[in-house]
Structures are given as structure tokens and as C-alpha cells.
């Protein structure tokens, strides 16, 4: 994103050409626009700031009426509670975080290993009904999870994948493969096929040409794609809540959502867990900000 943002900074001179009489009005408008943007930014960011604030407040400040915005005592107790159980030892939440790391990580690796070669093949070779195949692949990604989970639930019950990490890994990989293929096909298309042709003239086989010349050029694209797949799996909730139940398997989203099940809700803990959960996503998203548009539209829109 940053690229397209930085590229187009030259609207300035255009405005300068407006007659002097209108320039003052322009400046007044400019101030108004900045004010409006600031207000919108505050509104958009307030919930996030409030979440961070709640996570470092003491309980009596969390529930203070009226709400305390500035003068509260800072504590890291909630963060401690996220990782350490009340009686010492690991908390259920920290186990869930570990599970999330395993499930999201392995499913991303699987989706990448399956998706990248397929994307290359779709980009380079003339495959029968290529367009239809690609459309079909992307359509599977649009299926409502709530609907897909019904037969998947029955299927997993038959084969004993209910309440296993493997089950989650497989379904997440299946949901990430279409994304990986579409996203990576864009990246492969950008690498000239002539590189491979030249390598093959030099005596390499097609496979070697792919492995030695194209693949190294694709590494940044693969990294960006994998990061998005990681974010999708990390954030996923519907499959996780219906296909897993035990604390040893459950990933972080259903575990965090489970915190509000009881009669009283420890909002400080919920906030701290949410912050811990969201932080890696924000860091990762920042790393791939250049590819954000392609990433969030499943590789369909590229700029």
C-alpha cells in the first residue's frame, strides 16, 4: 500500500494553480478537511486504544462509572493472567495460543507447499479450461463457513478428526489454498517466462528452471502470501469453535470468546488476551502492507 500512497503525492501543484482569490477558501477547506480526518481517525482508533487501556487497568478502574480515560493505575496483572494460571503453571489461554501457533503455522506451510507450484503451473502452462478452474478454486473460498462446517463435522466424526489439531489444519489449508493460488499466480505472472526459456536453452529441465531461477525470484511474494494465510488461520473462529472442544486442542479465538461465557466477565483479562492475540497480526500486516489490497481481496485485485 505504502508504494501507491507515496507515488501519488503530486496533487500539490494542481491546487497552486487555482486563482489567488480562491486560494484562501482552499486553505480554509483544507483545515476543515484535516479536522474531519482527525475526528474520523480518532473514532476509528478509539476502540483499539480503549482495548489497550482496559488491558492495563486495575479491575476497579475497568468497571469505574463514569469511565476513566486518563487517571488510572497501570497494572500488568491481566497480561500475567493470560499466560499464568491462578494456581501457577500454564493457563488455558496460553495453551490455546500455542495451539493457534501450531495450527496456523502448519496449515500455512501446507497451503504454501500445495498452492505455490499450482500457481506456477497455472501461470506457465496452457491448462484445459484454465479460467474455469481458477474461478472454481476461488469460489470454494467464498463458501459460508457455517454451511461447510456441517458436513465437515459429520465427515470428521466418521474419520476421528473431530477435536484434533490435524482436522483444523486440513480445513484451514483447504481454505488457504485458493487464496495462495490466486495471490501467487499474480506474482508468478510478474516473473517473465523468458527466464525459464533461457534456462532451458542452457540445458536445464523445466523443473530445474523453476527451482533455480523462478522460485528465488518468488520468495518475497511467497512470504507475503504466507503471511496473509497465517493471518486468516490465526483469526479464524467458526471452524475452530465447532470442530474442537477440549482445552488441549482449542485455538485462541474460541478460547478468548469462551472468557465471556460465565455470569461475570473479567473484561480486563479479555482485553489483555485480545491485545496479545491481535499484536502479532498487526505486526505481520504492517510487514506486508505493500500487498495489502491483493491480500484482503484474496488476490483478486492487484495494484
Amino acid at each position: 500500500m505504502a508504494v501507491s500512497v507515496d507515488e501519488a503525492v503530486s496533487t500539490g501543484p494542481v491546487r497552486d494553480r487555482t486563482p489567488a482569490a480562491r486560494r484562501f477558501g482552499g486553505r480554509g477547506r483544507s483545515v476543515l478537511e484535516i479536522a474531519l480526518l482527525t475526528v474520523l481517525a480518532v473514532v476509528m482508533l478509539f476502540p483499539v486504544l480503549w482495548m489497550i487501556e482496559t488491558s492495563i487497568k486495575e479491575n476497579r478502574d475497568v468497571y469505574a462509572i463514569p469511565a476513566k480515560f486518563f487517571d488510572f493505575t497501570v497494572t500488568l496483572d491481566h497480561f500475567k493472567d493470560v499466560f499464568v494460571a491462578s494456581g501457577g503453571g500454564r493457563s488455558t489461554l496460553s495453551v490455546a495460543f500455542l495451539n493457534s501457533v501450531v495450527v496456523a503455522g502448519v496449515s500455512t506451510v501446507l497451503a504454501t507447499v500445495l498452492g505455490v507450484p499450482a500457481a506456477w503451473a497455472y501461470s506457465r502452462f496452457s491448462v484445459k479450461a484454465k479460467k474455469d478452474q481458477l474461478f472454481f478454486i476461488l469460489s470454494t473460498r467464498f463458501m459460508p463457513p457455517v454451511v461447510v462446517v456441517i458436513p465437515i463435522f459429520l465427515m470428521y466424526r466418521q474419520v476421528g478428526l473431530i477435536d484434533t489439531k490435524l482436522g483444523l489444519i486440513l480445513i484451514y489449508a483447504a481454505f488457504n489454498v485458493p487464496f495462495t493460488i490466486w495471490m501467487m499466480k499474480g506474482f508468478v505472472d510478474e516473473v517473465p517466462a523468458e527466464y525459464e526459456d533461457a534456462a532451458m536453452l542452457d540445458g536445464y529441465t523445466r523443473l530445474q528452471a523453476f527451482w533455480k531461477f523462478t522460485l528465488p525470484l518468488l520468495v518475497p511474494g511467497i512470504a507475503a502470501t504466507a503471511v496473509f494465510a497465517l493471518i486468516f488461520s490465526w483469526n479464524e473462529f467458526v471452524f475452530a469453535i465447532f470442530l474442537t472442544s477440549s482445552d488441549t486442542v482449542r485455538t485462541a479465538p474460541p478460547a478468548i470468546a469462551g472468557l465471556i461465557g460465565g455470569t461475570t466477565v473479567d473484561w480486563g483479562l479479555v482485553a489483555a488476551a485480545s491485545v496479545v492475540f491481535a499484536l502479532p497480526v498487526l505486526v505481520f500486516a504492517y510487514l506486508v502492507r505493500k500487498h495489502l489490497i491483493a491480500g484482503v481481496t484474496l488476490g483478486a485485485v492487484r495494484r
Binding site: 476509528m44 476502540p47 483469526n235 478468548i256 470468546a257 466477565v265 479479555v270 497480526v281 498487526l282 500486516a285
Partner: peptide
């Protein structure tokens, strides 16, 4: 970058937080 933060959050986090 600032405006994009909400979009990257999990719906679970968003839902919980707004509930509060």
C-alpha cells in the same frame, strides 16, 4: 496505516471489544 488497523483484527476480538 492507522485507518487500516480495525480491518486486520479478528472478528472475535472486534466482537468482544464492542460488546464491552
Amino acid at each position: 496505516t492507522l485507518f487500516l488497523v480495525p480491518m486486520m483484527l479478528s472478528q472475535v476480538v472486534v466482537g468482544l471489544f464492542w460488546k464491552f
